[in-house]
Design a binder for these strands. Structure first.
Lengths: 138, 138
DNA sequence: TGTACTGTACTACCTCACATAGTACAGATG
DNA sequence: CATCTGTACTATGTGAGGTAGTACAGTACA
């Protein structure tokens, strides 16, 4: 069976649909809501569920596969791959810096203090790691 | 006179040209490299300097004006406006959270520790505030 | 064997954002 | 007056994103 994948697409979201899917799955993996070996919904099934075109889902899956987050098995489906890192140290560092720079750009004119921004980030990062597969505490 | 505005456009940048201009100027204001009352290069002059279409620059200026960062005076030019905040508290908070969420998404699969991300952000935020107009300290 | 599922690869078409090019007009300055 | 300023148009081309439909090879199961 494939995981239910409580995924939703927001029409108001500035991100492209396929990007929303990529982000959602990428985040779910980081949160351990999806573990190695888990089977994803089929291209057609997820497309049906989200009321979008199968090609759009295929594009998202292709992106995730290219990133090494998914393994494709012809005729079987797509599965969460073992954690790996196919990016070089330089590339990872470059992307981290770019992502941080983008945040700095985005909040530059909002007049938040450094501490406020850092606290918000710490909070959001914490929301990721705390959701472990061992969870279920009360 | 208008500030020289050492601005550059990178063709490899995924951002649209007008967005690069918006971000650069927004950042320059946050850095106090541009102060209230400073005059910006004319639409046509900056377009010439960057080898892009005047319409593209006009679009960037219009965006900055809409954000309240610039004041337009017909026939005179565009000037850095007094610091103000026309966004509601909710809107600012919403944007901060969205920006932070985007960062979290971007770095989710890079396997950086929370501390590393936070330290990078603290560094980049620091690079903003340290550049004050009172600068020039040997 | 046949049927139904899987991912994947196409082609075609539509829409929209972005960028360029050119023109035009009102306000400001000399 | 001429020349600068921002601004507002129209027109055109390009590319990303999305949809629609078709097709094919690999897998599973009755």
């Amino acid at each position: 069976m494939s995981k239910p994948l409580k995924l939703s697409i927001r029409t108001g979201d500035p991100r492209a649909i396929f990007k929303q899917v990529v982000d959602a799955i990428s985040l779910a993996i980081a949160r351990n809501e999806l573990e190695e070996g888990d089977k994803l919904p089929s291209v057609r099934a997820l497309a049906m569920q989200l009321s979008v075109n199968p090609n759009t889902i295929a594009k998202a899956y292709a992106e995730l596969t290219a990133q090494g987050l998914l393994d494709a098995r012809q005729g079987l489906g797509l599965f969460i791959s073992a954690p790996k890192q196919l990016l070089s140290r330089e590339e990872r560092s470059k992307r981290l810096r770019a992502a941080v720079q983008r945040l700095v750009n985005d909040v530059a004119h909002l007049h938040y203090s450094d501490d406020e921004v850092l606290r918000m980030l710490a909070t959001e990062l914490g929301r990721i790691r705390t959701v472990s597969k061992t969870g279920g505490a009360a």
